[in-house]
Simulated scan of single mutants.
Amino acid sequence: MRTLLEVELDTETANRLITDGTLPKVMGGLMETLKPEAAYFYARDGQRCATFVVDLADEAGIPSLCEPFWLQLSARVKVHPCMNAEELSTGLGRLGRASF
């Protein structure tokens, strides 16, 4: 299941990891584990943020998806199932007019 993961890093934790030089290693490890389809890093409302698009086998994978960000980065995490345009088209095709 394609999943959008929004991550907002805790400023104090991120500052410490940047200062001691470990943030690149932590993020590299997370990227290696997640193997995201896409990854974006940006500032939002004055906070360091990232968005990842990952493949999640099922809902039981949510804890292993989120825990590393909570434990290593004290991050806020939002998880959203999502789809690409082709998947949306397939889903809409399944609706049929009789559904309404």
Results as ranks from 00 to 15, higher is better:
residue 21 G to Q: 07
residue 21 G to V: 10
residue 21 G to E: 10
residue 21 G to C: 07
residue 22 T to N: 07
residue 22 T to V: 11
residue 23 L to G: 05
residue 23 L to N: 04
residue 24 P to G: 06
residue 24 P to E: 00
residue 24 P to D: 01
residue 25 K to E: 13
residue 25 K to Q: 15
residue 25 K to I: 08
residue 25 K to H: 13
residue 26 V to M: 08
residue 26 V to H: 10
residue 26 V to I: 14
residue 27 M to K: 06
residue 28 G to S: 12
residue 28 G to T: 05
residue 29 G to F: 06
residue 29 G to I: 07
residue 29 G to S: 05
residue 29 G to K: 05
residue 29 G to L: 07
residue 30 L to D: 06
residue 30 L to T: 08
residue 30 L to V: 09
residue 30 L to C: 08
residue 32 E to N: 14
residue 32 E to S: 15
residue 32 E to L: 12
residue 33 T to Q: 04
residue 35 K to Y: 11
residue 35 K to D: 11
residue 36 P to K: 13
residue 36 P to I: 13
residue 37 E to N: 06
residue 37 E to P: 00
residue 37 E to D: 14
residue 37 E to S: 09
residue 38 A to W: 08
residue 38 A to K: 10
residue 38 A to T: 15
residue 39 A to I: 07
residue 40 Y to M: 02
residue 40 Y to I: 02
residue 40 Y to G: 00
residue 40 Y to W: 06
residue 40 Y to T: 02
residue 41 F to T: 05
residue 41 F to S: 02
residue 42 Y to H: 03
residue 42 Y to I: 01
residue 42 Y to L: 04
residue 42 Y to S: 03
residue 42 Y to F: 07
residue 42 Y to E: 00
residue 43 A to H: 07
residue 43 A to K: 06
residue 43 A to L: 12
residue 44 R to T: 00
residue 44 R to Y: 04
residue 44 R to V: 00
residue 45 D to C: 02
residue 45 D to K: 05
residue 45 D to M: 05
residue 45 D to W: 05
residue 46 G to R: 04
residue 46 G to P: 00
residue 46 G to L: 04
residue 46 G to W: 06
residue 47 Q to K: 13
residue 47 Q to H: 14
residue 47 Q to C: 13
residue 47 Q to D: 10
residue 47 Q to P: 05
residue 48 R to T: 11
residue 48 R to S: 12
residue 48 R to Y: 11
residue 48 R to Q: 14
residue 49 C to G: 08
residue 49 C to R: 12
residue 49 C to T: 09
residue 49 C to E: 04
residue 49 C to S: 15
residue 49 C to P: 06
residue 49 C to N: 12
residue 49 C to F: 05
residue 50 A to K: 03
residue 50 A to F: 03
residue 50 A to I: 05
residue 50 A to P: 09
residue 51 T to Q: 11
residue 51 T to W: 12
residue 52 F to E: 06
residue 52 F to S: 09
residue 53 V to F: 12
residue 54 V to I: 13
residue 54 V to G: 09
residue 54 V to S: 09
residue 54 V to Y: 10
residue 54 V to H: 09
residue 55 D to G: 14
residue 55 D to N: 14
residue 55 D to K: 14
residue 55 D to A: 15
residue 56 L to F: 03
residue 56 L to Y: 02
residue 56 L to E: 01
residue 57 A to T: 13
residue 58 D to R: 02
residue 59 E to T: 11
residue 59 E to C: 05
residue 59 E to S: 09
residue 59 E to A: 12
residue 60 A to G: 08
residue 61 G to D: 09
residue 61 G to I: 01
residue 61 G to W: 02
residue 61 G to M: 02
residue 62 I to G: 00
residue 62 I to C: 00
residue 62 I to Y: 00
residue 62 I to N: 00
residue 63 P to R: 00
residue 63 P to E: 02
residue 63 P to V: 03
residue 63 P to D: 02
residue 64 S to A: 15
residue 64 S to P: 03
residue 64 S to L: 12
residue 64 S to D: 15
residue 64 S to C: 06
residue 65 L to K: 02
residue 66 C to S: 07
residue 66 C to V: 15
residue 66 C to N: 03
residue 66 C to W: 05
residue 66 C to Y: 01
residue 66 C to T: 15
residue 66 C to E: 04
residue 67 E to N: 14
residue 67 E to V: 15
residue 68 P to F: 10
residue 68 P to C: 09
residue 68 P to N: 10
residue 68 P to K: 11
residue 68 P to D: 12
residue 68 P to W: 13
